[in-house]
Design a protein around this nucleic acid. Structure first.
Lengths: 191, 191
DNA sequence: CAGGTAGCGACAGTGACTGTCACTAGTGCG
DNA sequence: CGCACTAGTGACAGTCACTGTCGCTACCTG
């Protein structure tokens, strides 16, 4: 009874999230997920390459969004300003997903293997940002450094924002990037 | 015939590295590794929690070394300068391990699951650096930001150095941290 | 309505990892 | 010298993530 496949996929995603939260990631089997979603275990692996990936389904979209923002940024901005602008754009999406993002974040934080996958996704994303910067003419290694340092700064801001969402994410982003500049100014060369 | 266990462990490490390089990580089974090391598969898992961990055996030592450097740094240095100093110290160890580190690096780069583990180790290490900075009185979030941005910068320098080891690692570190300062100086706030 | 195809179930198989139990080579101690 | 004691191991059974394959059926397209 294949209507579009998107339904089964969506049910699998929901079932997985529920079970992971109820029993923990490690004590949840893919068979259980499939059962709750009303499909076979095999079908689970047709939709998701592995047990972790269910929780990272939106990552490609976020990456798309961010790199697009970088590409469309006005001329003459410094690399980190381009990134700051992109993060602020993406933040609007994130602000909408807060209620979904929070339990997911807890789950990831509590599960080493999910933490690994999360870091891998972050790295991929940072590399994509570096590539987008490179396409704007930023020199290779500088682009990579900017992307990674910028991403670290973004995380920095996001965490602060999640722990106290009364202020807007934009505020935290401005603050975090200001911190980064402060750090940079403190470097004494050739010590 | 247990003499100290350290021998079996060492043979397992060597056998694993060889087989990973010969046949690739994915096409190597833990049974094969154990066989080449002359022990049982079960013994492999007594020494290493999983198949990947064999390649990251020295990580705890490096972390120890770096955090110690941070703790012992003289007063009055800016956070990033403390890190730069610690990286230069650790670099001396790394320069000795270059011939071993290079194939390992290739292997990790070519194997997604090893890349994940590597990122996790890096993150743990960065967190340890942040903690060490915190103990010196650096404010919490600033310490974390400095540690992560500093670590990204360290990687930046290390990669450049590996691709052309004629110049010393210290040179690259100075250059990379200078780049970071340049980036920071370019940030225009409140754009 | 014929033919293709996408999503699925069923089944068998591999390989990473775990729990358990019994054994044995060393080690400390009287 | 002998006697527990322990750490490292082998043997074995079991779970679970993940993969390959085959055949079925609901849908779509002409």
């Amino acid at each position: 009874m294949p209507r579009s496949g998107a339904e089964a996929r969506s049910r699998l995603k929901q079932a997985a999230l529920e079970l992971y939260r109820e029993n923990g990631f490690d004590k949840t089997t893919t068979a259980e997920i499939a059962a709750r979603a009303g499909v076979t275990e095999r079908t689970f692996f047709r939709h998701f390459p592995d047990k972790r990936e269910v929780l990272f389904d939106g990552e490609a979209d976020l990456r798309e969004d961010l790199t697009q923002s970088v590409s469309e940024a006005p001329e003459g901005l410094a690399p980190l300003d381009i990134l700051l602008r992109a993060f602020k754009n993406a933040g609007r999406i994130m602000e909408r997903n807060l209620p979904f993002a929070e339990p997911r974040r807890d789950l990831i934080a509590a599960t080493p293997t999910l933490r690994e996958r999360n870091l891998a996704k972050a790295a991929t994303l940072a590399e994509a940002l570096a590539e987008a910067l490179r396409e704007r003419g930023v020199e290779d290694r500088l682009a990579r450094l900017a992307a990674h340092a910028g991403w670290a700064t973004f995380q920095h801001a996001t965490q602060a924002w999640i722990s106290d969402p009364t202020r807007g994410l934009d505020d935290y982003l401005d603050g975090a990037f200001a911190d980064l500049r402060t750090l940079g100014a403190g470097v004494q060369l050739g010590q």
